[in-house]
Each structure stands twice: as structure tokens, then as C-alpha cells.
Design a protein around this nucleic acid. Structure first.
Length: 947
RNA sequence: GCGCCUGUAGCUCAAUGGUAGAGCGCUACUCUUAUAAAGUAGACGUCCUUGGUUCGAAUCCAAGCAGGCGCACCA
């Protein structure tokens, strides 16, 4: 007879193979059909708000692994909060303005922006940006990210722009904005000022020259005759704008003589100077302290101009001569020194990098071409000591990759100094995770210069300032701004480019200064960092559009590079107009690197494309990867690592599948067994489950998802797969289907899966939904697992005494399985059910085992366990005299090392295998009708009590 | 160059200053009633390096190396 028909073997439709690339889109469709995000919001209405404000990715390409990591982390946080008693809305956003989009639009659409009218050009940029918003939106959704995708925020939305110019105006009102002539990074090719963030450093070859500045007035310290201060520069063209020479106040400068000439330079650089220039026989005449020489004047070598000696701490001695030529119009530090000494700022260059008439004989030359002319000019006057070519790192435009220059132009600035203290104080009110983020942004703010807000570009939000055509005064006030805001809300910022100034001002508007009625408008637009930096007001505080949000946000979460970026610009605008940070906490993550810790780059060939991973393995694999590692550090990814993640995924999935397959006939509403009626093994499983909940919830709470991952994975592998599930198989398969014993095990399986599926939901969004569909439901349970709440620890299940006892039992079990393995190696047994185990022990341990005796075969999963008490004084050393005669032939192991006082002996059981339950029993064969059954199975079959 | 962070088994992570652990992967074995599953066992570590503090250092300190991020690469 085939007794397997009388067993309750596992059964489920839940597929073992995930086939995520095909299954996930189905689930996505389901979520859309039921409008899951809205349902989650409804479920959480009235709960405490947890607003995670989305940092807007830039809409100019497909998503990459960095944005994937960021968005998945955000989604885990939002899903966790949504299931942990909070109302956690998520409004995604995009950064849609700026130079990169302009340039890509130009390139991809073949536009000539000079030939187009600005409104038309902006339309193309908008289309380009919106195209990628749509692409990225679908890509993010595919990752399982939940949010208000149908109503995201875009920095190009009319209302957003209106709020943004309001922020700017408020800053003007508070006196934080000024127009200044200041050197900024300038790209002559792109014809615009660049933000610091838009600059990258690359190798460049430059001429390096040593130049003589003849002393005009040595102030009694330096002789004037044939005496020069020697400077070194790698940008000869900037000499045209030279107005000073800078020395370090505390360095020694030496006056040396070579033949008739005398040179002044830093003492420490004398030898390198001699070497480079090939000058020999240099005689030291006198040594000065830099600060002594302040105020000495020199002749400009080829212009009719004086150059004065000034002092600066920033002068270094690594290259050059320790004497730095100063052109305040062409360098940040030059400019600062210039301010200190009230030096003129010369910057005779136009937007395209050509010298203006102001440059005299150099006018209309391209600035780099002027290098040679300057050198020629120096040679002509014998002011050039030496020329060489050096390779150094030089700032380049991040878009066109061309070298850039420093150029003083009229720009609008935010004066950080005016509210730096407030910024620093606001930083102290924020929780920075990890803690070092605070120091990082604090130091950054403490040292940053003024914020250059202007960009000489088209695709952005205009700086909303008018100029009186009569008196030239700039005009911006509540009246003009609120009028403009209305226009922006109606027409978007395009209106600024489409209309003349008069059509942008309130009717009959007069200049507040001179009452004139004619105006021009500012042509600069704002830095895109001002766009995204205004999002906290343009999004969080717009109840008409997003009533679910509030200001300030509970959390910002971005990569650690955003300390200088979005965290910074958002803080700046927020403190400027609200005196407070826009976020209560800031969490940062590291960057994606390869398995060797190197950054991803095309040239290294180590780039992992998330879209490919989704196609090949599924989004849940990416989500599990994000959860698997500690993101506060850099996150490594490689095919090998993804493979490992996939293995873990399979284990989790298959564990869930096994639980499901044993719940096929279980109705939680009627079949659950009371705690009091559970076996000890079951209760122990529930203790383990509580430990899982504890650890996982703490991991979520602490933003440590790798702890959650490891805890869950470990639980599946050890507590369930290796222990509990293995131990209860007999009960599940062979005992009466509806009997208390089997229902007890099923009760635990059910509770376990119900916990597992929920506690995994923030991470494995798709798979948990799939599991949820198969899970036996009680009435009233929601259609999506995301509409449930996370499990809580049930204190009643935390039986500490039981837990301790089981720790001991499992240690003994480990010992037994090891001895079984030895027996197996010796081909004494195969399946552990072929083993009969004898435990030799005494004293307390014997008493302990005696009390647990009935459970031991189940725990060890063997057919028989004998307990043998050693006599007093006998120890449990592997002394054959201690063993029963039959065990002398058996495989055995002393375990004095691991479990003192215990010897485990294993032999092949004498009984025969019951063909129903596979347990070996000496009484198999006694019944003629069922000669292959053990007494237990016989009883069940005879009474028909197995269904 | 400067600042911050990181550096434990092939991988992902643990380890109040007290004999370095887990899981995965790998190898071998077992099972065939979770089966493109499941169980058991085994091997695998100069805890980045070098100094120092300490009775004792993966852990504290210093220097260095490697990687990441940021600042600056100036003249």
C-alpha cells in the first residue's frame, strides 16, 4: 500500500522560481489598479506625520545605480514609516532647469540658441526635461518606489517658480543680496558663470614664466637700481590685469645678486629658482621678513602701472618664488587680498573671453592667445627670466570640458556673512546621521564665501529685478514681486522672456527713486541650486497642491556629496527667510563602488546598470542589495555580489514557500491553537520569532537595514530551515491533519509567515506582495500587504526560561548532529533517522535530559534516544568501559570539550523503517495487515484518523 | 596637498580592551516526504601596515598605505 496518500505533504501554487522580471510588472499593475499609494495614505490619515522630502534628481538622463540606491533607501524609509504608525507621504521631485539640460538639448536637437528666440529655446529645454522626467518616473516606479507619481514637484512648475522668486525677493528685503563685481569661474565657450559645483579639475599644460617686476620705491629697504621682485605664473595673460604683488608676512625673502641684477624672492625657493632658471653665482645680499616689505612699489613690466607689495597668508612655498602676482579680477584670493588693500578690480574680458578695449593693445585678442603676446612683450623688455611648460590640474567646465577662467563680472550674490551665524546655529538644531555630517557641513558653512546666484543663461528662473532706465537704480519690492508672482503662476517664468519690462510691472508703476516709468529687466537667471534649494518652501508649504506635506521636513536623505549641494543650498535659503533649517534630520549614504572599492567608471568597465539588473534579475534583487550592506559607507556592487544577494533571496523565498505549502489546509480564523496548547518546540519558535521582530524593528528604527537583512536571513536559515522546520516535518506530514499537534505547528507557521511577510515588506516590496496573495487570510485583511502594520513583539511569547533551556538543548543537539555526521562519514548511517543515539551523562545534566527525554528524538531528528546515567564518580571521558557493550562497536565522540560531562554514542538503529513516517522502529512488522508500519502509524491508519 | 569617512574569512556583516564570530559562497557527505529544494560537516583570518599606550589591542593613540566623498590644487 502506498501510505504517502495518507500523509499531509506540502502543497502550494506559490512558485519556487521567482521569475521577477515578468512577475514584478504584474504586481505593479495591481498596485496601480487599486491605487495603493492613496490607500496607504488613507490608512495612515491622522497618524503622526513623517515627511521625507525628496531631493530632486536632475532630469537629463536615465537613472543609474546611484539614484537607484538613493530612491530605494527612501522607499524603505517611507514604507517602514507607513507600516510603523506614521503618516509618511512621499512626493517625488525633479530638478529641471540649468546648463546641463540646455547643452544636452542643444546637442541632441541640434539647436542654435543664438538663432532662436528665448521662449522658443526654453520650450525645447522644457520638452527635453519633461521627456526625462517621464522616463525616470517609469524607471523609479519599476523599482517598486511608492509615491505621488501623478503629482510630483518640478522646479519648472509655474507655482514653484513663483515661490522661488518670492524667496529671492525676501532675501533681497532682508539685505542679503547684493550685486558685485567679483571674479567667478567663467566658461568662455558656454559664456556663463559657473557654480563651484560645475567645475572639475583636469590636467592641463600651461606656460609657466618667471617675471621681473622692477622696484620703483624700495622704501629704503630695497634698492631701486636694477632690482626686481620675481614672480611666477602659469597664466601670463592675467598679468595684463596685475595690480599688486603678494608676499607671505612670515616667510623670509632674500635679495640676491647675479651680475648686475638683483632679485627678491623667497629664501626657501632660492635653490629651485636657481636650478630651474639655470642661474649661477647667486649671491645673497640681504634677508627680509615678508611683512617688512609691505607697501613697496614696483613698475608693471609692460604697462604704465604701479604694482604694490601686499601681504597674504595663503602664499605657499611649494612652487614659484613665494611672490605672487595679484590680479583681483582673475582670482578668488587675489580678489580678497584686493579688497583688503582696496585694489582696483581689472577684468578687461568680454563674455566670450576676448579682451576689451580696456586692455589697450591686447584688445580683441582671445585670452589664451594673449599668453604668447604677453610673453613676447616681456621678452622685449627683458623682464622674462625663464619660460617653461608645466602640467598641472586646472579647472575645467564640467559640461564642455574646456579650461575655464576667473573673470570679474557683475553678479548677484547672497551675502553669507550676513547670516552665517544663524546658519551655524541652525546646523546645531539638526540631527545629522552619521554624526560626522554635522562637522562636515559646519566647516563648509563656516568657511564658504558668498553665493554667486547669477547665471548668464536662459533655461532657468529669472532674477526678478528691474532697472530704472532713468536713474539706473534696481527695482525689486513687494509690489513688483507679487505682481510678478501672479504672472509666473499664470504663464510660468517664460513670461519674463516673452514680455518687455513694462508688461511685467504693475500698471502705472513708477521708479521708487526717481518716479520714472521706463525700465529694463535683469537678464541673468538663477543658479539651479537656488531652484532646488527653494523646494522646502515651494513644495512642503503648498497646502493647495500637497496638503499632506508640512514644513520643516522630518528627514532629508541624499548622498554625502550633498553636504555641499542640496543640504547646503536648502539650509541657506531656509535660514535666510525662516531663520531655521528646513529639515529636522539629515541622513546620508555613501557612493556606489565596485567590489574592489573603486568608483564606477566606463573606463574601468565596472559600471552596473540598474535597468539591466531589473531586466535580468528583478527589482527586488536590487532592493535586497540596498538592504544588505551598510550604506553609510560606500556600497560595493558587482556581478558576484549580486549573485550572493540572489542566493539570499532564494533562501528567503523558499522558506516562505515552505511555510505556505504547509498552510494549504489552514484557516487562521478557526484552526489556530491556543498558546497553552502549543508544544515546547512551538513555543520556542515563537520566542525566536519575537527576537526576530525585536532586532528587525530596531534595525529599521536605527536606519540600519543591513541589520534587518542579516537578522531575517539568519532567521530563515538557522531558526527556521535548519531547526524548527526540520523538527516539525514529522508532525506536519504524519499526524492527523486536523489534530491539535499539527494545527499547533501550523499555527506557528502561520504566525511566523505573517510576521515575516510584513517585516520584509519595506525591503522586498514585490515578493512580499506575492506571498501575501497566497497567505491564508482572516476576514477583513487588506488586499495589499503594504496596507498592514509591522508586527510588534508579543511579550507573552517571550518565555525567557524556555529560551535558556532551548539554548542548552540546541547546544546538545549540535553535539549529537556532529556525532551523527561522523557515523555518516563511516557509512554507519545515511539519513539521521537511521541513527539511535545514546547519551551518557550524570548529575544535573542527566536530570535535565531526563526531563526533556520525550522531546529528544524530535529535536535530534533521530529514531531513538537512550539516556544512560553514569555512576557517581564516573566521568564522561571516552572510556569504553563507560559504554554499553553494543556501543563499543559504535561510532562515538567524547564531548568533554564542548559539553562537559556528556558522551554521545551513535549506532545504526536496529528497528525497521516505517514506510509511512520513515522513522525506524523495532515493532515494525508485527502487524500482518500492515507489515511496514510502526505502531503509531498503524494506529492512525487503523482508525482512519489521518485525514 | 588639506579635511572627513572606511579598511575583520572569497562576499555581506558582527565582535563593553580579555582565547576573532555569523550567514552566504566553496568543498565533502547525506537525503529524495521543501526537489533547478533540504540537512550535516569541513577548510578558509599577518583583524590594511608600522610603531606606541597597556599585564593584555581588531578595539585606544600616532604615522603610513589603499579606497571613497568633500575642499583646494592656486599665483
Amino acid at each position: 500500500m502506498d501510505y504517502s496518500k495518507t500523509l499531509n505533504l506540502p502543497k502550494t501554487e506559490f512558485p519556487m522560481r521567482a521569475n521577477l522580471p515578468e512577475r514584478e510588472p504584474e504586481i505593479l499593475k495591481f498596485w496601480e489598479e487599486i491605487d495603493l499609494y492613496r490607500m496607504v495614505q488613507q490608512k495612515n490619515a491622522g497618524r503622526p506625520k513623517f515627511v521625507l522630502h525628496d531631493g530632486p534628481p536632475y532630469a537629463n538622463g536615465h537613472i543609474h545605480l546611484g539614484t537607484t540606491l538613493n530612491k530605494i533607501l527612501k522607499d524603505i524609509i517611507v514604507k517602514y514609516n507607513s507600516m510603523a504608525g506614521n503618516d509618511a507621504p512621499y512626493v517625488p521631485g525633479w530638478d529641471t532647469h540649468g546648463l546641463p539640460i540646455e547643452q544636452q538639448a542643444i546637442k541632441e536637437l541640434g539647436l542654435d540658441r543664438r538663432a532662436m528666440n528665448p521662449v522658443e529655446f526654453r520650450q525645447k529645454c522644457r520638452e527635453f526635461a519633461l521627456k526625462f522626467v517621464n522616463i525616470q518616473r517609469e524607471e523609479f516606479k519599476r523599482l517598486g518606489i511608492g509615491g505621488k507619481w501623478e503629482k510630483p514637484y518640478l522646479t519648472l512648475h509655474p507655482n514653484y517658480e513663483a515661490v522661488q522668486i518670492g524667496v529671492f525677493a525676501e532675501m533681497v528685503k532682508r539685505g542679503y543680496v547684493y550685486k558685485g563685481l567679483k571674479p567667478v569661474f567663467w566658461c568662455a565657450y558656454c559664456e556663463t558663470a559657473l557654480a563651484e559645483a560645475e567645475v572639475e579639475y583636469q590636467d592641463k599644460k600651461s606656460p609657466a614664466i618667471y617675471v621681473k617686476f622692477p622696484v620703483k620705491d624700495g622704501q629704503g629697504l630695497l634698492p631701486e637700481e636694477n632690482t626686481s621682485i620675481v614672480i611666477w605664473t602659469t597664466t601670463p595673460w592675467t598679468l595684463i590685469s596685475n595690480v599688486a604683488l603678494c608676499l607671505h608676512p612670515n616667510y623670509n625673502y632674500v635679495l640676491i645678486a647675479q651680475e648686475k641684477e638683483k632679485y627678491l624672492l623667497a629664501e626657501e625657493l632660492l635653490s629651485s629658482f636657481a636650478q630651474v632658471t639655470g642661474q649661477q653665482n647667486l649671491k645673497k645680499i640681504q634677508v627680509f621678513r615678508g611683512q617688512e616689505l609691505e607697501g613697496i612699489t614696483c613698475y608693471h613690466p609692460f604697462l604704465d602701472r604701479e604694482s604694490i607689495v601686499v601681504l597674504g597668508e595663503y602664499v605657499t612655498l611649494d612652487t614659484g618664488t613665494g611672490c605672487v602676482h595679484i590680479a583681483p579680477g582673475h582670482g578668488e584670493e587675489d580678489y580678497l587680498v584686493g579688497l583688503q588693500y582696496n585694489l582696483p578690480v581689472l577684468s578687461p574680458l568680454d563674455d566670450r573671453g576676448y579682451f576689451t578695449a580696456e586692455a589697450g593693445k591686447f584688445s580683441s585678442r582671445y585670452y589664451t592667445d594673449a599668453d604668447q603676446e604677453v610673453i613676447a612683450e616681456l621678452q622685449k623688455g627683458a623682464f622674462l627670466i625663464k619660460q617653461e611648460t608645466i602640467q598641472h590640474q586646472y579647472p575645467h567646465c564640467w559640461r564642455c570640458k574646456k579650461p575655464i577662467l576667473y573673470r570679474a563680472t557683475e553678479q548677484w550674490f547672497a551675502s553669507i556673512d550676513k547670516f552665517r551665524e544663524a546658519l551655524l546655529q541652525a546646523i546645531q538644531q539638526v540631527r545629522w546621521i552619521p554624526g560626522w555630517g554635522r562637522d562636515r557641513i559646519y566647516n563648509m558653512i563656516a568657511h564658504r564665501g558668498d553665493w554667486c546666484i547669477s547665471r548668464q543663461r536662459i533655461w532657468g528662473v529669472p532674477i526678478p529685478i528691474f532697472y530704472c532706465a532713468h536713474c539706473g537704480k534696481e527695482v525689486i519690492n513687494d509690489q513688483t514681486i507679487s505682481h510678478l508672482q501672479n504672472l509666473f503662476r499664470q504663464y510660468g517664468s517664460d513670461v519674463w522672456f516673452a514680455r518687455e519690462a513694462a508688461e511685467l510691472l504693475p500698471p502705472d508703476f513708477n521708479c521708487p527713486v526717481c518716479t520714472a516709468q521706463e525700465f529694463t529687466k535683469e537678464t541673468d537667471i538663477m543658479d539651479v541650486w537656488f531652484d532646488s534649494g527653494s523646494s522646502h518652501l515651494a513644495v512642503l508649504e503648498q497646502p493647495d497642491t500637497w496638503p499632506e506635506l508640512h514644513w520643516p521636513a522630518e528627514l532629508y536623505l541624499e548622498g554625502s556629496d550633498q553636504h555641499r549641494g542640496w543640504f547646503n543650498s536648502s539650509l541657506t535659503t531656509s535660514v535666510a527667510v525662516r531663520n531655521k533649517a528646513p529639515y529636522k534630520a539629515v541622513l546620508t549614504h555613501g557612493f556606489v563602488v565596485d567590489e574592489n572599492g573603486r568608483k564606477m567608471s566606463k573606463s574601468l568597465g565596472n559600471v552596473v546598470d540598474p535597468l539591466k539588473v531589473i531586466k535580468q534579475m528583478g527589482a527586488d534583487i536590487l532592493r535586497l542589495w540596498v538592504s544588505s550592506a551598510d550604506y553609510r559607507d560606500d556600497m560595493a556592487v558587482s556581478p558576484n555580489i549580486l549573485k550572493q544577494v540572489t542566493e539570499a533571496y532564494r533562501k528567503i523565498r523558499n522558506t516562505a514557500r515552505f511555510l505556505l505549502s504547509n498552510l494549504y489546509d489552514f484557516n487562521p480564523s478557526v484552526d489556530q491553537v491556543n498558546y497553552q496548547e502549543l508544544t515546547e518546540i512551538d513555543r520556542w519558535a515563537l520566542v525566536s520569532l519575537q527576537r526576530l521582530i525585536q532586532k528587525a524593528l530596531k534595525g529599521y528604527y536605527d536606519y540600519e537595514y543591513h541589520v534587518v537583512y542579516h537578522t531575517i536571513h539568519n532567521f530563515c536559515v538557522v531558526d527556521l530551515s535548519a531547526l524548527y522546520l526540520d523538527m516539525i516535518k514529522d508532525r506536519l506530514y504524519t499526524m492527523p491533519a486536523q489534530g491539535r499537534e499539527r494545527r499547533a505547528a501550523q499555527t506557528v507557521l502561520y504566525k511566523t509567515l505573517h510576521v515575516l511577510v510584513r517585516i520584509l515588506t519595506p525591503i522586498l516590496a514585490f515578493t512580499t506582495e506575492e506571498i501575501w496573495r497566497y497567505l491564508p487570510k482572516k476576514e477583513g485583511e487588506p488586499a495589499s500587504v503594504q496596507l498592514t502594520d509591522l508586527p510588534q513583539v508579543k511579550e507573552d511569547y517571550l518565555d525567557l526560561e524556555l529560551e535558556q533551556k532551548w539554548e542548552r538543548l540546541l547546544n546538545i543537539r549540535a553535539e549529537v548532529t556532529m556525532v551523527c555526521e561522523m557515523a555518516r562519514q563511516e557509512k554507519l548511517i545515511g539519513n539521521s533517522l537511521e541513527a539511535e543515539v545514546t547519551l551518557y551523562t550524570s548529575g544535573e545534566l542527566y536530570d535535565f535530559l531526563r526531563r526533556e527525554e520525550i522531546n529528544l528524538t524530535t529535536i535530534f531528528i533521530v529514531s531513538k534516544v537512550n539516556l544512560h546515567q553514569l555512576k557517581d564518580g564516573q566521568d564522561a571521558c571516552p572510556d569504553n568501559n563507560n559504554l554499553l557493550p553494543m556501543e563499543k562497536q559504535a561510532s562515538y565522540l567524547s564531548t568533554a570539550k564542548n559539553i562537559p560531562g556528556l558522551v554521545v554514542a551513535v549506532r545504526r538503529t536496529k528497528g525497521a523503517k516505517c514506510t509511512r513516517c520513515w522513522i525506524y522502529n523495532e515493532k515494525v512488522g508485527l502487524n500482518a495487515e500492515h507489515p511496514t508500519l510502526c505502531p503509531r502509524c498503524l494506529e492512525l491508519i487503523k482508525t482512519g484518523h489521518f485525514a
